[in-house]
Structure formats: structure tokens, C-alpha cells
């Protein structure tokens, strides 16, 4: 028998997305004035899956997230170069209506920020603005449907006219998610959606994210590595403005290729 050296078996990556990229970024650079915040980032974000961005503070993950719905446009000194497409359409096309883009790409922030209006109005605001309902019945359907999909309806169905700001933190965050999905977006961006919530409320949001991914493309920025490991199928690690490594979540958390990724996720000095 020969003493052939053993072949190395690649670990099976079961979560490899089999669908085309929903969002594709190519050589994206972001500058805040002189500061080069994001360096040459190219990545594909698959449809109907959760992609997590992780990395230390100031690594550029939120900056990149905000490029996807052009939130960085609101910062005067911010300059974005490179290409970002959604369904192969350039979102930085000057003819593109940014308001419509942000209806297609919803966003949920770190701190729950419901409007100082009723629970009903919080959810109804977007659909009404975009003329998605022809009458009150249709609007009611959208509001109830969105609250249900955000797993909040049962808790608020008897008090839809109460102030949204009167809900608990976790409920407020689910209200914000209901508000985001009310306009039927294709992509939902979440910037640390659970960092202000307790573990129970966090678990509810995570359960919700897992349900939402059957219909939406979700990108989540999180400081909790455990959360990224729990909710996402793809993970991208950013460091000092660069995308260091991107891959299936299982691979990133069990066998990262880059030493910087490994040092970060295992809590070592980088």
C-alpha cells in the first residue's frame, strides 16, 4: 500500500446561498472629508438570506451599510466611489429617486426610534406616503399585516391608537421593523438592532429576523458575534475600513481563513 499523503477535505458549507446576489458592491470607497473610511470593498449580498457585518468599532461596517440605501448622501462631507447595484441596477445612478430607493431598502437603527405618533400611524405613515393603499380598509390590512409579520400584533392589537413611544424597548424595535416592512422593501438594513434590548427582547428580534429572511434580503451590523453566528447565513468581517474576509457564517466562526478574523472572533489582541 502506498504512503500517499492524505487529501485535505474541505469542510462542507451547507449554507452556501444558491441564489444570485441581490446587492453587489464593487470597489466601493468612502471618504469623510480627508478620512478614507472604507477601502475598496467588493462583496455580494445574496437574496433572501441574512448577511452579518462584524468588526471592531470604526471598521467601516456601518458606513458600508449606509451606502446601500444612500444614507451617506445626507452627510455633506461624505464621498462615495465605486459601484453598488441592487438587482444589477446601479443605485448611484443620478436619475434614480433616492426616496424610492429607501422604500426598497428599509432600515432599522440601533435605538428604537418610533415617530411620536400612535402605533397605527407609525406603520401607516410609509404606505400612505407612497400611496400604497387606496382606502382605509387597504391601509388597515397593511398595518395589521406588518404588525403581524413583526410579531407585535398580538401584544398591541387592543391599543393601536396608543403612542408608539409608550411601548417597551423591544416592542418599539419590533414596531420599527413593522414600519420598515410596511412599505414592502426588498432589502432591510439593520444597524445593531438589539444593542439596546434585553436578552428576551433580543431573542424575539432574532426569531423575527429568521422569519423575515424568507421574504427579504437582510443585512445586519452587530457587535455581538454570537448574534451574527445565530442569525446570519453569510458573515463579512471588516477591519480598518477593509473587508478582510467574507464567507458562510459557519466557516467564518469555526474556521476563518484570515488570522485577523480569527483574532477578532476569538477575542485576541489584533
Amino acid at each position: 500500500m502506498s504512503l500517499a499523503s492524505p487529501m485535505v477535505q474541505e469542510p462542507a458549507s451547507v449554507s452556501e446561498p444558491d441564489v444570485a446576489a441581490k446587492v453587489a458592491a464593487r470597489s466601493v470607497n468612502v471618504y469623510y472629508g480627508e478620512k478614507h473610511a472604507l477601502k475598496d470593498v467588493s462583496v455580494d449580498i445574496p437574496a433572501r438570506a441574512v448577511t452579518a457585518f462584524i468588526g471592531p468599532s470604526g471598521c467601516g461596517k456601518s458606513t458600508f451599510l449606509r451606502c446601500i440605501n444612500r444614507m451617506n448622501d445626507t452627510i455633506p462631507i461624505c464621498r462615495v466611489t465605486g459601484d453598488i447595484t441592487i438587482d444589477a441596477k446601479d443605485i448611484y445612478d443620478p436619475r434614480l429617486d433616492v426616496v424610492l430607493l429607501r422604500a426598497r431598502v428599509g432600515m432599522v437603527f440601533q435605538k428604537p426610534n418610533p415617530f411620536p405618533k400612535s402605533i397605527y400611524e407609525n406603520v401607516a405613515y410609509g404606505p400612505r406616503l407612497h400611496g400604497m393603499a387606496r382606502n382605509k380598509t387597504e391601509l388597515d390590512e397593511i398595518v395589521v399585516g406588518s404588525l403581524k409579520r413583526a410579531s407585535l400584533f398580538e401584544e398591541v392589537k387592543d391599543r393601536l391608537n396608543d403612542q408608539g413611544t409608550g411601548l417597551s424597548g423591544g416592542q418599539q424595535q419590533r414596531l420599527c421593523i413593522a414600519r420598515a416592512i410596511a412599505v414592502s422593501p426588498e432589502v432591510i438594513l439593520m444597524d445593531e438592532p438589539c444593542s439596546a434590548l434585553d436578552p428576551i427582547a433580543t431573542a424575539k428580534i432574532e426569531e423575527l429576523i429568521d422569519e423575515l429572511r424568507t421574504n427579504f434580503t437582510i443585512v445586519i451590523v452587530t457587535h455581538s458575534m454570537q448574534q451574527a453566528a445565530r442569525v446570519s447565513q453569510r458573515t463579512a468581517f471588516f477591519h480598518l475600513g477593509s473587508l478582510v474576509e467574507e464567507g458562510s457564517t459557519e466557516q467564518i466562526f469555526t474556521n476563518p481563513k484570515d488570522k485577523r478574523t480569527q483574532d477578532y472572533i476569538t477575542g485576541r489582541f489584533g
Partner: peptide, 11 residues
């Protein structure tokens, strides 16, 4: 290595 040893082995 994070990988499994496999392949022919003398028995």
C-alpha cells in the same frame, strides 16, 4: 487546521 484528515491510509 479546522479540516479533517482523510484519504488513503495504510491498514
Amino acid at each position: 487546521t479546522g479540516q479533517q484528515l482523510s484519504g488513503p491510509r495504510p491498514k
